[in-house]
Simulated assay, not measured.
Amino acid sequence: MSVEVVIKAKSWRQRRSKNEAIDLVMNHLKRGEWAPVLTMWLGDGEAVRRDVLRGEYELVIAAKEPWRLGSSVSANEALVARGKEAFRRLEESAGIYGELLDLLKAHKWIDVKLATDDGFRAAFKLNKKRSIDVLREAFGRNDGEIPTEQFSHAEDGPRRGAVAVAGVVMSLHLVNGTGGSLRAERYTRDLGKAFTIAGRLESAGLRPNVVRSGPKYVVYIATTDLLRLAERDGEIRRAMALYLAEKAKNGTPRQKELAEKILQRYPLFSISYHLLEAIIAMRSQYCVKR
């Protein structure tokens, strides 16, 4: 014997005001039910894939009265939740509808998968087209040789933290992020020259990228390539160590934090760290005397 409960509705439509809908979503969230939040986020949520790939997980939803949803991050946006766990809850709440979202390749759903599925994340990064590939497809490949002296910083002015890589003078730069990273950059207004510089770096066995930065293009190599170079080139290793030590001592609070993390992470620089501190102190005294 079993009991069957049948409910009949006069209409499938439910009419609610925006505020009533928001209150309903938040009431469900307080009870640990994330499905309504997922529905709202897929519609009005903000998705910044770059942040997700950096490990910065924030669930932001647009609203005229953001305080109804959570902490206001702008006049029209609310931070509902943060952290990887929030995205995991979104994925779980989708249930069988997650399969439909997979088939649709929904943009925001992909962000959820990137935050929660390490295998999916690794495959995505492996197959993702880099900016240099997109630019080459759009404007054609031009890696012709030009004289080495044209790769000096005459175009941009001298830069601190300069390092020569495959005959190209580049500038070291700390990159913000969860753990921080270091890369070598070269700016130019000429896309053809950017391709040429990238080609020279590629011929040296490196993996450069080219991105737009305002009116200029930035050719850069990432930390992995820099570390490989530092292992076999003492000049590059010293330049990197000195740059990091200077930032750890005299940089902004965030620069100090990032530089210290990198110095601690890679033993390659630890031996000369105290020596570099002494050099920096001597430089500072010299500058004061002048």
Rank of each mutant, 00 (worst) to 15 (best):
I7A: 02
K8N: 05
A9V: 07
S11R: 14
S11W: 00
W12D: 11
N19Q: 15
K30R: 14
V37H: 04
L38W: 01
L42T: 11
G43C: 07
V52K: 04
G55I: 06
L59K: 08
S74W: 05
R82D: 11
L90F: 01
E99H: 10
L100F: 05
L104D: 04
K108I: 02
W109N: 05
W109L: 04
D111E: 13
A115P: 03
G119R: 05
N127L: 09
N127D: 07
K129R: 14
R130C: 04
V134K: 10
R136L: 01
D143F: 05
A154H: 11
G161H: 15
V165K: 11
S171Y: 08
T178V: 14
G180I: 06
G180L: 12
A184M: 09
R186V: 09
D190F: 03
I197C: 00
G199P: 08
L201T: 04
G205F: 11
G205A: 11
R207F: 13
V211I: 15
V211M: 13
R212Q: 12
R212M: 06
K216D: 10
I221C: 01
L226W: 05
L227P: 15
L229M: 12
A241W: 03
A241C: 09
L242I: 01
Y243I: 02
K249Y: 08
G251R: 09
Q255S: 11
L258I: 13
P267V: 11
P267T: 14
L268F: 05
S270T: 12
Q285Y: 02
R290Y: 03
